[in-house]
Amino acid sequence: MATNYKESLLKHYADKVTFSEEKAEEFWVEKENFLEIMSYLKRMGMDLLSDITSVDAKEYFEVVYQLFDHASGEHFTIKVKLDHEKPEIESLANLWCSANWLEREVYDLMGITFLNHPNLERILLWEGFDGYPLRKDFVNDHHNRMGAKPQ
């Protein structure tokens, strides 16, 4: 039986989710309610956390989650805004194992901290690398490849 995720989400968390006007499958969540809503979606049957990525919007960070129910093909893009000074968000590694590495990648390249992550360390770059390369203030300095310093 196919679950109507959008309807039940709006029924239970009408004041906590903001659906995008252009894209039917996309909604915003506040950082405080994030874990609660993700746990709810997991219980409802969203079983494939396909991707986690992040965007440095200069004033704030955006973390973008792609969540699927493989049986019905239902899909959600979930976006969370984070403070630029101290970007922190709850880890999903206890709900979906796939979050473990995906979050480590975001932490490594964008410098977003995932709280309660079982093993939050750099994954593509080495420990001790200075800065987070995907941030917009990171200088892509070809002459100093061994770790350009952010200005």
Binding site: D51, T53, V64, W101
Partner: peptide, 26 residues
């Protein structure tokens, strides 16, 4: 999976690839 964000200029603002092998070997 490919995520592309645009700020309206000729260069992409952000490109991200969800690479299958990366997720598979975790």
């Amino acid at each position: 999976g490919c995520y592309v964000a645009s700020d309206g200029s000729t260069n992409p603002y952000r490109v991200h690839f969800r690479r299958p092998s990366f997720s598979n070997i975790a």
